[in-house]
Measured scan of single mutants.
Amino acid sequence: AVSDRLIGRKSVVMEAISPQNSGLVKVDGETWRATSGTVLDVGEEVSVKAIEGVKLVVEKLE
């Protein structure tokens, strides 16, 4: 599936994300709604860990 190619990809937070609120990330020039178990600020680099419905699950790059 097209979405499977996103797992493991680097992306950049475009709208802040917290455990309570989804935000936005940009992956390969496309904007996606995303969630995370931690707070992520605009501009942080993250990695796509999973896809749940139409949202990406991301975490901060170490």
Rank of each mutant, 00 (worst) to 15 (best):
V46Q: 02
K26P: 01
E30W: 09
S3H: 13
V46S: 02
S11L: 09
T35A: 07
E45K: 08
M14L: 14
S47C: 15
E62K: 11
E62Y: 13
V27Q: 02
K26N: 11
K49T: 13
G43K: 03
L24D: 01
V2R: 11
G23E: 03
T38N: 10
D28T: 02
V27T: 04
G43L: 04
S18C: 08
W32R: 00
G8M: 04
A50Q: 06
I7E: 00
T35E: 08
E62F: 13
D41E: 14
G8Y: 03
E62V: 13
L61E: 08
A50K: 08
W32T: 00
V57A: 05
V27R: 00
E30G: 06
G43S: 03
V25C: 06
R33F: 11
V27C: 08
G53R: 04
D41N: 13
L6F: 08
A16F: 09
D4P: 09
V39C: 14
G37L: 13
L6Y: 07
T35P: 02
T38Y: 11
R5V: 07
V39T: 12
V57R: 09
T35I: 14
I17R: 01
R9G: 05
L56C: 02
V42F: 05
L40V: 07
L24I: 10
S3M: 15
V58L: 03
E15S: 11
V46I: 04
A34C: 07
E30A: 08
S47M: 15
G37E: 14
I51S: 04
S3Q: 11
S47D: 06
A16I: 09
V27P: 02
V2D: 11
E45V: 15
V48K: 00
Q20A: 10
I17G: 03
V13F: 01
E44V: 10
W32S: 00
G29C: 12
A16W: 11
K49E: 06
N21Q: 14
V46R: 03
S22H: 09
S11T: 12
N21L: 11
A16S: 09
A50V: 04
G23R: 03
E59N: 05
I51Y: 07
V2L: 14
V25S: 02
I51F: 07
G43Q: 03
L6H: 03
W32Q: 00
W32C: 03
T38M: 13
V25Q: 02
V25F: 02
T35C: 13
L40I: 11
E59Q: 09
K49F: 08
E30V: 11
G37Y: 14
E44F: 06
L61V: 10
T38S: 14
D28L: 09
A16V: 08
P19V: 05
V27H: 02
N21D: 08
T31H: 08
E15C: 13
K60T: 05
V54W: 14
G53M: 04
I7N: 03
V25H: 01
D41T: 11
N21R: 15
V54I: 12
E52C: 14
S11W: 03
T35R: 06
K55C: 15
M14F: 10
S47L: 15
L40A: 04
G8R: 05
L24A: 09
M14T: 10
E15D: 05
A1M: 12
K55N: 14
D28G: 08
V13T: 02
G8V: 04
A1T: 12
S18R: 07
V48D: 01
S3G: 11
R5E: 07
V13S: 01
V39R: 11
D28M: 09
A50P: 00
S47R: 15
V54G: 15
E59I: 09
D41M: 13
I7D: 01
L61P: 07
V2A: 13
Q20H: 12
A1C: 14
V39K: 11
V42T: 05
G37W: 14
E44H: 04
G43R: 03
E59K: 05
E45M: 13
R9H: 07
D41S: 13
G8I: 04
L6T: 02
L6I: 07
S36I: 01
G8E: 02
V42L: 06
S18D: 07
V12P: 01
R5P: 06
R9T: 06
V48W: 03
S36Q: 01
I7V: 09
T31L: 15
A16N: 06
S22K: 04
V57L: 08
S22G: 09
L24G: 03
E59T: 08
S47F: 15
V42Y: 04
Q20T: 13
R5T: 09
K26H: 09
V39G: 06
L24R: 08
V39N: 13
E52W: 12
V57Q: 05
E15L: 10
G43N: 05
A1G: 11
S22M: 13
S11A: 15
G8D: 03
V2N: 13
R9F: 08
V42E: 06
W32M: 04
A16K: 14
T35D: 08
E45F: 14
S36E: 03
A50E: 06
L6P: 00
N21S: 13
G43Y: 04
A1Q: 12
A50T: 06
V27Y: 04
V39D: 10
V13C: 04
G43F: 04
E62S: 12
Q20S: 12
V12S: 04
K10V: 13
P19F: 06
G8S: 04
T31D: 06
E30H: 09
D41F: 13
W32F: 14
E62T: 12
G43E: 04
G23T: 02
E15K: 12
K26C: 15
E15F: 07
V39I: 12
D4Q: 14
K26G: 07
G43H: 04
V58N: 02
E52G: 04
V54E: 15
V39A: 11
R9S: 07
V27D: 01
I51H: 05
V42Q: 06
E15I: 10
V54Q: 14
L61N: 07
D28E: 08
S47T: 15
E59D: 08
K60I: 06
V25W: 00
V42W: 04
S3T: 12
V46T: 04
K26V: 13
V57G: 01
V42P: 07
V54N: 15
E30S: 07
E30R: 09
W32N: 00
Q20F: 12
V39F: 15
T38E: 14
V27I: 15
A34N: 04
D28Q: 06
E59V: 11
Q20L: 11
K60Q: 06
T35Y: 07
N21M: 13
D28V: 04
I51P: 00
L40W: 07
V12T: 09
R33K: 11
G43C: 08
V39Q: 11
S18P: 02
R9K: 11
